[in-house]
């Protein structure tokens, strides 16, 4: 059984995403909406991490390395300017997508396990992640023409 592997991936992916939201928020304090919303979304990821903890324990995880590598690629250094915001949001989008598909996979596992608690946790959290992706897409779509064509 490899459920522990995916629980570990997700547990770490959400923790890394929370951290990345905070870093992006701090780097772009002048983008007021990004600054404030990334704080809220980071807190949401923290809750996901807490929510996952008992399952991680129950299925005795082995620590995987994959999400660490993804996160390491996010900030080689803080990016500045309109293009920098776009690129940073782009990175967040990839990390949130990674979490999103991992929730999907775990939801399948929960079905196979007949683990209702895990299924409920997945159903609730994956909605948050889906909204996070929608917000990132909305914000990037608004920013892209100005950042790429005008500035």
């Amino acid at each position: 059984m490899h459920v522990a592997h995916y629980l570990g991936l997700l547990h770490r992916a959400e923790a890394n995403l929370a951290d990345a939201y905070r870093q992006v928020g701090a780097a772009h304090a002048e983008e007021a909406d990004v600054h404030h919303l990334t704080g809220r979304l980071a807190a949401q990821c923290d809750q996901h991490v807490e929510r996952l903890a008992p399952f991680v324990e129950r299925y005795a995880q082995e620590a995987p390395q994959e999400p660490e590598r993804l996160h390491a690629e996010l900030f080689a250094g803080a990016r500045g300017g309109g293009l920098g915001v776009l690129r940073d949001l782009h990175d967040l989008y990839l990390m949130a997508s990674y979490a999103d598909i991992t929730w999907t996979v775990l939801g399948q596992a929960a079905a196979g396990l007949r683990d209702d608690d895990l299924a409920t946790a997945v159903a609730e959290c994956e909605q948050d992640t889906s909204i996070q992706l929608s917000w990132l897409r909305t914000r990037m779509k608004a920013a892209a023409p100005q950042a790429l064509v005008v500035a």
């Binding site: 909406d33 919303l37 809220r40 979304l41 909204i131 996070q132 929608s134 917000w135 897409r137 909305t138």
Partner: peptide
């Protein structure tokens, strides 16, 4: 839109 983030559907 999502009320908490403004994400557009």
């Amino acid at each position: 839109q999502d009320l908490l983030t403004g994400a557009e559907f």
